[in-house]
Amino acid sequence: MTKVRCFTSASFSYLDRVRVLGETLHRHHPDWEFTFCLSDIEPEGFVFNLDEEPIDALVRIGELGIPNLDSWMFEHDIVELCTAVKGKMLCRLLEQGAEKIVYIDPDIAIFADLTDIERALDTHNVILTPHQLRPDTSEIAIRDNEIGSLKFGIYNLGFVAVSGRPEGRRFAEWWRDRLLSFCFDDVPNGLFTDQKWCDHVPAFFDDVLILRDPGYNVASWNLSQRPIAIDSNGVIRAADSVLRFFHFTKVTWAGEVMLERYCGNRIEVFELMYWYRDQLAQRAPKGLPERWWAFARYESGNPIPPQHRLAYRQDGALRRQFPHPFSSGANSFENFMKEREVR
């Protein structure tokens, strides 16, 4: 049987989540190879030892062959960057000869067997999971869910599976190219990172499977139509389908507000959330500074304000003038922006 190559993408601040994903994935698919695409660098004193992780392989952002890497990275905030590399990483695995590739967001935990995905890649080139599978009825749910998907994308790109056949590759290359140029959170201009692009996929590519099983990619945005229940044999279901994976988008109390709204007065979804929090607490990386991201600061140590990234992204002249925008000191982009702000 063809080996499935699975990957996720994150910075170190999500290492706890990557670990939970790796462990839960290996529990159900020990044969799948799990790669971590890392858009970060270790802080001083922090050791990341792959041998101690539930991760089979590591690919650092520098290994992806992205041209003008510093400049390109600087254009993106943490979420944009960790999503922008997904297309490149996908193509890299395809170039290595992978025949079946599954991308899964780090904040997902696997609860059951995913063999149906593996099998579906024999006949389909791309598999997508829509945020919602059934229309909502209440106004608040329509606003939260259906209108949310109109803004952020019909399909949730926390999951995508791609075949190594030519049409699968054509999708991967198209997505890679778009993400290299336009992977931004800019909803007013029709962009939402890597996700909104995929609204085009069913029209652009052949044999795309829109996975309509409610057990896949259950999250706060579809809970209204997918009540979680647990039967006496201990099977967890979402809308009567076996729960395959749950997308734990927000794990703070803010995330609980949406669960409260759509839990249907049932405790099970809170059990899932509190279990996940417990898993994260147990797997929190030791010695990693709070909110660490190597690309959050200039070399001087000063945080990079969002408006600096935006100015750099929007102005080709600035990008040409400052090909290494993270640098500090004389003739640096940081100084340039400071002076511009003073003016």
Binding site: I230, N233, G234, V235, E271, W275
Partner: peptide, 22 residues
């Protein structure tokens, strides 16, 4: 009581429910 909260009917220890129980 699963998670000390809901009667669980003592499912098999490898069940999904036991997987999310404390």
């Amino acid at each position: 009581l699963r998670n000390d909260t809901v009667y669980c009917h003592a499912p098999p220890s490898h069940s999904m429910a036991c997987g999310i129980c404390s």
